[in-house]
Simulated scan of single mutants.
Amino acid sequence: MLADLAFFSFVELTDASSHEAYNRWHQLDHRPENLALPGVAWGDRWARVADPEAALSRGSAAGRTGSTTGANSPNGADALAGTDYVAMYWFRSPTEESVTAWNNLGDASFQWGRGPIIPGVRRPLLGFFRPVKGYAAHRVLVDPDVLPYRPNRGLHLTLTRYAEPHGLDTHSSFTWEDTRLIPELLNVDGVAGAWTFSFSHPQQHGTLPFTATFAEPPGGLRIRMLYLDEDPGTTAESVRKAERRLETAPDAPRDVGEVLFSSPLSTIIPWQDW
């Protein structure tokens, strides 16, 4: 497996005029410093694509309409409604040492006066996830571990909350995702591959004031991430159609999860997209 631990950050800029400055900082300073750490296998960041129909699917289960419990809570779907960017990093073993070095860099960067505590930047979700399984579309030829290094045009990312992370219905949902949903999505034009992740724990930095908004148990959150090599907006439409087709099939599992975020994300091209 590429790495034993991954970190996800959902970012909202409260000042619309700050995008260029934030992108310059992240692309030219923050991300290069992190990628230079031996324990960081890879890291990237994507911009949310405007998608009025399905950027957020409040209170649904794996894309299906269901319970709205928690949708308006501080750590529900509304907490992520303003998401502008999603960043992630993959950590090599030994993960504890890798994360410690990464955290130390964060504190050092603050002492240098170079972030990551920046005015107008809100981070509603900062969490570590365990990689579950990777998948690669047959046409792309590469192994799933190679997907993060393969150029992409964006992602389609779905974040789902499970009230009973280790319940039997949740297990059935995961079986269906692995054997029915993801194989179908790999046949969608523009989908190069996929990875799934299970929530481990929120970020708890030793010195920087990062506050955990999502206090979930292990496994309480799950991310399905599709790597895209065609236009993210267009591919997202095809992904939704495939999801709907399977979700109405007789073997589709019952609703057990609450989708908190489901959206296409676009790869950021330095200077061009600022």
Rank of each mutant, 00 (worst) to 15 (best):
P253L: 00
A236Y: 09
G193M: 07
R139V: 11
G127E: 06
N23W: 06
T213L: 13
G120I: 06
P202H: 02
P209Y: 08
R130E: 01
L13G: 11
S67K: 04
Q111S: 09
T95P: 11
W274Q: 12
P218M: 12
L185K: 06
L226R: 08
F129E: 05
F210M: 03
G193D: 00
R122T: 01
D255M: 03
V259A: 08
R222E: 11
E237G: 11
S172P: 00
D15F: 09
D107I: 14
V132K: 13
A252R: 04
S238H: 10
L2A: 12
E177S: 09
P32T: 00
L265R: 01
T175W: 12
Q272V: 10
A81R: 00
R58Q: 11
E237M: 13
L35Q: 03
L157V: 15
E237V: 15
V256N: 09
L260I: 07
A61N: 07
H171E: 13
E237H: 08
R31Q: 13
A41T: 14
L56F: 08
W271F: 13
H138F: 02
H138M: 10
V256P: 00
E177P: 01
A101E: 15
R31T: 15
L80C: 03
L246H: 05
D107G: 06
F214I: 11
T100S: 13
P183H: 07
T248Q: 09
R48G: 10
I223T: 10
V132A: 13
H205V: 01
A212W: 04
F214M: 11
W271Q: 10
V188Y: 08
G59F: 09
T213I: 12
T69N: 15
F8Q: 04
G63I: 04
T234W: 06
T179M: 02
A215R: 11
T267G: 00
A137M: 10
L260F: 13
L141A: 15
F199P: 01
N75F: 07
R161Y: 13
S198L: 01
R180T: 13
A212T: 08
G219N: 03
E184R: 12
E33M: 09
A101L: 13
A249L: 10
A249V: 04
L228I: 04
A21V: 07
A212L: 07
R139H: 08
A47L: 10
P270A: 05
